[in-house]
Design a protein around this nucleic acid. Structure first.
Length: 578
RNA sequence: UGGGACGUCGGCAAGCGGUCAAGCCACCGGGUUUUGAUCCCGGCAUUCGGAGGUUCGAAUCCUCCCGUCCCAGCCA
């Protein structure tokens, strides 16, 4: 039981009751585990964590927290051919960043290799496992198909003593890689193919990140996972749907080892997270990195945790998202808008507001004194008064967003246009008097405006209304920066499935506009001290963070995390067809 | 054609035989607003993959059908 007083324990929100929590509730009622709840997050260290793993992390650690239980971090490192230290380190960093703590319970399946081997000898001793000498191809051929049963290996009925001897010699390194395997002796005619004498050990002379060269036989997932759960005292072993067919095997091994006591682990499967416009398989993510379609595992377009972190996502946003999508057994795909909603919700509360002009258009305020530079006090976050204020320089020459001016304004456009008056956020009202263009190209190069000295601070004594409020940056003090505008990585919702169906490479659906680099953006000078990784709201535009690897004082680089909702863009889009 | 699972609003997802089919996102209105942001208010499934059946009463139980996903790695 949780030692903390009830009021300090995380409270389960009503409505957050999913089928897994219902199972746990029932187990708690029946006393199956004596009220104990112990989960684990078991990544294989063969790649970086992505948003799909976040769902599992939030589920496993979240359940442990809610029930006053524990959650282990366990590396499922049974296949040294694919696993690397780099991944072991990044995974820990990502889980920690997401806000979870495994305390002193950092485990590896490889910690149990000796114990697992003893279990294997036990199975052999009971006549429940045998050493097979069939080749990989022969094993595949004799396994049968979903509709036809397999056939027994000629080595299936060896005496126990011979099997034991062979297994020990396998471990001792007497046989060549791939020449022998240890298989469970179950049923070659089982309708569930996983039960057709599955392999427990294979011979691989590969050095392991954790155990080095002390083993030349390695356990398979099926053999290692359930037993590791049992060793750790896991009560609820939560995994994804594709392991559903493995559950009978999970249970068979536990039975075979006489783990019949109450409290033996129980495997529960849920549907993995699918998101639109991206790919989630480690194989594909690795390929995108290796082939240079993205700048690395932490490219801000990647659905990896480190990519999202670099993009400007917050742990809280990811956690809220994972909690809000629910847990079920239905194969589903979550709308990207859901993720973005939680991102904006979190950032809206915490991101300081600043002004930045991405596509600058110069404005000269003709009746404002040339040498004058006022300091205007501006709030940092209307959602959070404790965020304080900062000073903004205001001068005769400023930049506004090119798109905030229309020479021929469409209906419902209430920004700047010839003769129109708008408010400069925190500043004055200005009216457009003249449009200056480049005589050769015809491009608008400058706007000549006048300001109303009475409108300081953004309102006038006569109380007249202006419909538009624009963001701006003073020319003389502007900080120049590069801004990277990110969009979805793929241009179709289901790149992997579409590719398979149409028999093309999923990479042909890569969105060519997933990154737009904008140079020469003008930022308010307060951003000069912005620390790498911090996220701001660029007023009226979106959330942007200082790129953690490419930004420098000499050349600031900002990533667009997510845009603000934009109902004007919606109106404009809707009006266009007419 | 074998086995395992899943099908409730555009996307998720509650619901576990008894007024009315939660909630969130999206979408559509309307209000507030020195961010066309935020915030607020309102709308949004006579119907639960389909067809039968059981019952006074079914999304919830039964039968059949349809659709989708997973399984033939010495990957996890």
């Amino acid at each position: 039981m949780d030692a903390r007083p009830a009021e300090n324990r995380p409270v389960r929100e009503p409505g957050s009751n999913d089928f897994i929590r219902s199972i746990i509730d029932a187990d708690n009622r029946s006393g199956t585990y004596g009220g104990r709840v112990h989960t684990r997050f078991p990544p294989e260290p063969n790649g970086y964590l992505h948003i799909g793993h976040a769902k599992s992390i939030v589920l496993n650690f979240g359940i442990a927290e809610e029930y006053g239980g524990r959650c282990n971090l366990r590396f499922d490192d049974t296949n040294p051919e694919k696993e690397e230290l780099e991944y072991i380190e990044s995974i820990q960093q990502d889980v920690r960043w997401l806000g979870f703590d495994w305390q002193d319970r950092l485990y590896y399946a490889s910690n149990y290799f000796e114990q697992l081997y003893e279990f294997a000898e036990r199975l052999v001793g009971k006549g429940l496992a045998y050493v097979d000498e069939l080749s990989a191809d022969q094993i595949r051929e004799t396994r049968g198909t979903p509709t036809e049963p397999g056939t027994n290996s000629p080595y299936r009925d060896r005496p126990v003593a011979e099997n034991l001897d062979l297994l020990r010699r396998m471990r001792a390194g007497e046989f060549a890689d791939g020449s022998r395997v240890l298989r469970a002796r179950i049923d070659m005619a089982a309708p569930n193919i996983n039960l057709r004498d599955p392999i427990l050990y294979r011979i691989r002379r590969v050095s392991h990140p954790n155990t080095g060269d002390s083993w030349c036989i390695y356990p398979t997932y099926d053999w290692a996972h359930g037993q590791s759960d049992w060793i750790e005292g896991i009560t609820h072993s939560i995994c994804t749907l594709e392991f559903e067919n493995h559950r009978p095997l999970y249970d068979w091994f536990l039975d075979a080892l006489d783990a019949r006591t109450p409290g033996r682990p129980r495997q529960i499967e849920f549907a993995r997270l699918n998101l639109g416009y991206t790919v989630m398989s480690k194989r594909r993510l690795l390929e995108l990195v290796r082939e240079g379609h993205v700048a690395g595992w932490d490219d801000p377009r990647m659905p990896t945790i480190c990519g999202m972190r670099r993009r400007g996502y917050t742990p809280g946003a990811i956690r809220n998202f994972c909690r809000s999508i629910g847990v079920s057994k239905t194969n589903s795909q979550i709308d990207l808008a859901m993720l973005e909603f939680h991102l904006r919700e979190d950032l809206n509360k915490r991101a300081p507001r600043v002004m930045a002009v991405l596509d600058p258009l110069k404005v000269v305020i003709e009746n404002y004194p040339a040498g004058k530079a006022e300091q205007i006090e501006a709030e940092n976050n209307p959602e959070d008064p404790s965020a304080g204020t900062r000073m903004l320089p205001f001068t005769r020459e400023i930049y506004i967003e090119r798109d905030d001016f229309r020479e021929d304004p469409p209906k419902k456009f209430f920004r700047l246009a010839p003769g129109r008056e708008v408010r400069l956020k925190h500043g004055y009202y200005i009216t457009c008097r003249q449009v200056v263009r480049d005589p050769s190209s015809g491009e608008i190069t400058e706007l000549r405006c006048s300001y109303d000295p009475q409108s300081a601070g953004g309102s006038t004594p006569d109380g007249r209304k202006v419909k538009g409020t624009l963001h701006w940056v003073s020319v003389a003090q502007a900080l120049e920066a590069e801004v990277r505008l990110y969009d979805r990585l793929f241009s179709v919702a289901n790149p992997a499935e579409d590719a398979q169906r149409r028999n093309v490479d999923y990479k042909s659906f890569l969105n060519p506009d997933s990154l737009r680099v904008v140079e020469g953006c003008k930022l308010e000078p307060s951003l000069r001290e912005a620390a790498p990784g911090t996220t701001f709201q660029f007023l009226r535009q979106g959330y942007f963070c200082v790129d953690s690897t490419d930004s420098s004082a000499e050349k600031p680089v900002f990533n667009r995390t997510v845009s603000l909702r934009d109902s004007w863009a919606k109106i404009e889009r809707a009006d266009k067809p007419t």
